[in-house]
Amino acid sequence: MEEKNYYTIDPEGKLTCMKCGIPLVKGKAKFMYLDNGFPVELPVCPQCGFVYVPEELALGKVASVERALEDK
């Protein structure tokens, strides 16, 4: 069965990893907070594993899930 993804962003080749000099690709990542995990697909460097969290995501969905978990 396919694993659920809470959020997906495809970098479409617009982001470059400065360390490895290659484009970021849509890759599997996981947000962890207070012992809770959320699988997501985010821009990831296929070589060094750098995961990019865009500003809108951090201040939007991520922040609201943080607040919700903090009240658990």
């Binding site: 990542a29 962890m32 907070y33 594993g49 995961v51 969290v53 500003e55 951090a58 991520v62």
Partner: peptide, 13 residues
Amino acid sequence: RSAYSHRMNIVTR
């Protein structure tokens, strides 16, 4: 130009 933060930790899987 900008700075932001989040508390969640992000890991690859």
